[in-house]
Simulated assay, not measured.
Amino acid sequence: MSKKEIAADIAKILEEIYPEVPVPLDHQDPYTLLIAVLLSAQCTDVRVNKTTPALWQLADNPYDMARVPVEEIKAIIRPCGLSPMKSKAISNLSKIILEKHGGKVPSTFEDLEALPGVGHKTASVVMSQAFGHPAFPVDTHIHRLAYRWKLSTGKSVTKTEKDLKRLFPEETWNKLHLQIIFFGREYCPARGHDPHACPICSKYGRATLFK
């Protein structure tokens, strides 16, 4: 089978298991999604979802957040890790959104990636989940599984993203990246994984998984 045929079969399996997929990070609008994704760097979605309600009580829009002292933001988001860096980024990007974008989260990759603390993966999540723009955010689960399933070499997340975009139809990207994330968590974890019991690895997993 060609890689495209394997990718099509994997997409079929994922669609059967996850016909509907929720957005993992709780949010109300593009701004709260942007902040939640920023907080999720080196942190679990569960921890972020436990932390953001207190942050939204303090400020859930760039107008209010820009007026909150960085130390107050840092105190609330400390459980998410990297709080000194993340709190400064939240404060500064809120001010930039006000000054340069009229208080609205920008809806282009270029403008999003110009914001403090916002890299390509974060921008991709916001473009996909907030604005419906075709994007394929590659997190650790997707990067790991693309290698396990021989869809990519695993040399870098940038390479993985390019490989997956070539293999899967653009109209599937926004849903598919979430399906792979959920599959990685529930069926195909990094540790304690039985490839024989995995509905995808049992068919397409690398031979090293079965040693």
Rank of each mutant, 00 (worst) to 15 (best):
S2A: 06
K3T: 01
I6V: 05
I6L: 06
A7H: 11
A8V: 00
A8P: 09
D9C: 00
I10C: 12
K12M: 11
K12S: 15
I13H: 15
E15P: 01
E15Q: 06
Y18V: 05
P19T: 08
P19W: 05
P19I: 07
V21C: 06
V23F: 10
P24F: 04
L25A: 02
L25G: 04
D26N: 14
H27P: 14
Q28P: 08
D29I: 15
T32R: 04
L33E: 02
L33Y: 11
L33V: 07
A36K: 01
V37Q: 05
A41G: 13
A41W: 06
C43V: 03
C43R: 01
T44D: 15
T44E: 12
D45H: 00
V46A: 08
R47D: 06
K50I: 01
T51Q: 14
T51A: 04
A54Y: 10
L55Q: 05
L55N: 08
Q57T: 01
Q57C: 08
Q57A: 13
A59R: 04
D60N: 14
D60T: 02
N61S: 11
N61F: 03
D64H: 05
M65C: 14
M65I: 12
P69V: 03
E71G: 14
E72W: 01
I73H: 04
A75G: 06
I77L: 01
C80V: 05
C80H: 04
G81L: 02
L82S: 11
P84E: 05
P84A: 03
P84Y: 07
M85K: 15
S87F: 07
A89K: 01
I90L: 13
S91M: 00
N92W: 08
L93F: 11
L98K: 15
L98Y: 15
G102Y: 13
K104I: 10
T108Q: 02
F109P: 05
F109Y: 03
D111I: 09
E113V: 12
A114R: 00
A114V: 00
A114M: 00
L115G: 09
L115Y: 08
G117R: 03
V118N: 02
A123Q: 06
S124C: 00
V125L: 13
V125N: 14
V125R: 10
V126W: 05
S128R: 08
A130I: 04
D139K: 01
H141L: 02
H141A: 03
I142P: 05
I142K: 00
H143C: 13
R144Q: 09
Y147E: 02
Y147S: 04
R148T: 03
S152F: 14
S152I: 11
S152T: 11
V157M: 08
K159P: 09
K162G: 04
K162F: 12
L164S: 13
L164Y: 15
L164A: 05
K165R: 13
L167Q: 08
P169Y: 05
E171H: 12
E171W: 08
T172F: 13
N174Y: 13
K175E: 07
L176K: 08
H177P: 11
L178A: 03
I181H: 00
F182V: 03
G184V: 13
E186N: 12
Y187S: 07
C188A: 13
G192L: 09
H193C: 13
H193K: 08
D194P: 04
P195D: 02
P199K: 07
C201N: 08
S202Y: 06
G205T: 02
T208Y: 03
